[in-house]
Amino acid sequence: MELKGRVAVVLGGPEGVAAAVCRLLAERGARVAVVGGDELSVGDLVDELRWNGAEAVGIVAAGAGDATAMDSVRHSVLGELGAPEMLFVLACPVVTGGWQRTVDSGLTATFLALQAFVPAMAESGAGAVVTLAPVGTDPATNAVGGGVTALTQHYARLFADQGVRANVVSWTPRATTVDDAAFAALYLASDAAASMTATTLDVAGTLMRL
């Protein structure tokens, strides 16, 4: 899973699965754009990646659920690193604040990221997308997980003929499974999974969606 020189965009904040994916990408030589809402945390992760020899930039996107903000993220990535070849949308939805906030922070944010980045990947004729579908104990989280899965499969079918692959990691938000989810995401984006699209890898354990 050598990724030397490839441009990867990781949305989801500089912690949890997103942070673990950033570290795995950096270890394999990718050029990483870390996208999150907290400037200090983003900066800390970027500094860590650079300290370890990686090329990394931080992009603060306080309004990940806003189309204009997401488009600004895309332009920043293009200006800092060039056209992305890999997109990881690893948003773990906010479960406090009710149904709408959970859906917006998980499903809507994922849709806006795919809308902003995938068409450009299709124009270049290649791209790998990985999304994170959470499995939880509340209706809103599970609705986000199901929606993200269906949305990713839709994009996989829509852009398959243009060289873009899109796959899902189904995950239960637990600290003990973060590394498992991150490695699954890296595998799906790599050439080792070049023939896989519209696929879901389940690392949700006992809470897997049946």
Rank of each mutant, 00 (worst) to 15 (best):
R6D: 01
R6W: 06
R6A: 09
L11C: 15
L11E: 03
L11Y: 09
G13Y: 01
P14I: 08
E15A: 15
G16L: 10
V17S: 04
A20K: 03
R23Y: 05
L25F: 09
E27T: 08
A30W: 00
E39V: 15
V42K: 03
V46R: 05
R50I: 14
N52Q: 15
G53A: 02
A54K: 00
V57P: 11
V60M: 08
A61W: 07
A62P: 15
A62L: 13
G63I: 07
G65S: 13
A69T: 00
R74N: 10
L78I: 12
L78R: 15
G82Q: 06
L87G: 02
V89H: 02
V89A: 14
L90M: 11
L90K: 01
P93K: 04
G97V: 07
W99D: 03
Q100L: 14
R101L: 06
T102L: 02
T102S: 06
S105G: 12
S105L: 07
T110P: 06
E123L: 10
S124K: 15
S124I: 02
G125R: 01
G127A: 03
A128L: 07
V130K: 00
L132D: 06
L132E: 03
A133W: 01
P134Y: 03
P139D: 10
N142A: 08
V144A: 00
V148K: 06
T149Y: 05
A150I: 11
L151I: 08
T152A: 05
Q153D: 12
Q153M: 14
H154P: 00
A160S: 13
A160C: 11
D161P: 05
Q162I: 04
A166S: 12
V168C: 07
V168R: 04
S170M: 12
T172R: 04
P173A: 00
P173C: 00
T177F: 03
D179E: 15
D179F: 05
A182T: 10
A185D: 07
L186H: 09
S190A: 09
A192E: 15
M196K: 11
T200C: 08
V203W: 00
A204V: 12
A204N: 10
R209G: 05
L210G: 13
